[in-house]
């Protein structure tokens, strides 16, 4: 059975908007945020994102797991891709820059130095990544916790997508918490057979193989669930023709305001980047002076 995210009805500013208007804002924000690497603009967007996030009045403990996941991915991306290899900064951060350890890092008890080409510019870029991805995450993480699961499908239909696509989106949304639940059950079932998730020893290949007792049952269950869902839908005439959606969405004045703001945000972002040629990666003067 597909389960839903932990949604609770709340009186909140975000909850007063039509879900279609909320999606329009979310996508406008996403496109806007991806235009910039300039921390000055990113700070503004970051603040806007978290104002939006807090307007949902969802306590942190309800979204904690989702944030743990987001910050874990972000940390990996920044540490591996930006700080260690510098690959993530390619094409954005100019070549060269001010190296943090120009003479290398001394290795204690030896006369050797470890040469590590991390620059202050790359560190600043890491900060920009946090602002950009953190802001985008705030706008999207809050959706399942603040949007009535009954409105997923009709929202996409109301945005002009076909019935089948709209209902598929509803199912897709509910698939994530369902997989999480199934994963939890499988972990328990295998632990009951003496399996320990944190295995000892072995190379990376062996470690990957060790996850088979978890990955295979969860995958197989997903396939079976997919088959069940398809059968249950077929047996109840899904896809016969135009579908009636039980819930009807209606725009109100505040929705028009939010949509207008979203369009404005998007147009302003595009004008700044493509018209004024601003918004590229930028490092503050004072930082450069301080380093010099």
């Amino acid at each position: 059975m597909l389960v839903t995210w932990a949604y609770r009805v709340r009186k909140s500013l975000m909850g007063s908007f039509d879900p279609r208007a909320r999606w329009i804002f979310s996508f406008a924000f996403l496109i806007s945020a991806t235009q910039f690497w300039d921390a000055r603009f990113l700070v503004v967007l970051f603040v806007l994102a978290f104002l939006w996030y807090f307007s949902a009045r969802v306590p942190f403990k309800e979204t904690r797991r989702a944030w743990t996941f987001v910050w874990f991915l972000l940390l990996i991306m920044i540490v591996v891709n930006t700080i260690l290899t510098g690959g993530g900064a390619g094409g954005v951060v100019p070549e060269g820059g001010h190296v943090v350890w120009p003479n290398g890092i001394p290795i204690p008890l030896t006369a050797w130095h470890f040469h590590f080409g991390l620059t202050y510019e790359r560190l600043w870029f890491a900060l920009c990544q946090i602002l950009r991805i953190g802001g985008i995450s705030a706008v999207f993480v809050i959706i399942p916790f603040s949007m009535d699961p009954r409105s997923y499908g009709v929202t996409f239909r109301g945005l002009g997508f076909p019935d089948k696509f709209a209902y598929s989106m509803e199912l897709a949304f509910r698939y994530v918490p369902t997989i999480a639940r199934d994963f939890g059950v499988t972990v328990d079932a295998q632990r009951a057979r003496g399996y320990e998730v944190e295995g000892s020893g072995g190379g990376i290949f062996k470690q990957i193989l060790r996850t088979a007792p978890l990955i295979v049952p969860v995958t197989m269950n997903s396939i079976l669930t997919g088959e069940d869902v398809a059968n249950a839908m077929d047996l109840r005439c899904f896809g016969r023709g135009p579908r009636t959606w039980l819930y009807k969405l209606e725009y109100h004045w505040q929705d028009y305001l939010l949509i207008a703001f979203s369009i404005l945000l998007l147009l302003a972002s595009l004008a700044i980047v493509y018209g004024l040629k601003l918004g590229d990666f930028w490092v503050p003067e004072f930082l450069i002076r301080m380093i010099s």
Binding site: A189, A192, P213, M220
Partner: peptide, 14 residues
């Protein structure tokens, strides 16, 4: 000491 057979076999067979 304790062997536990879960309700659904598909949740453990791999």
């Amino acid at each position: 000491t304790v062997g536990y057979v879960f309700q659904s076999p598909t949740q453990m067979l791999f």
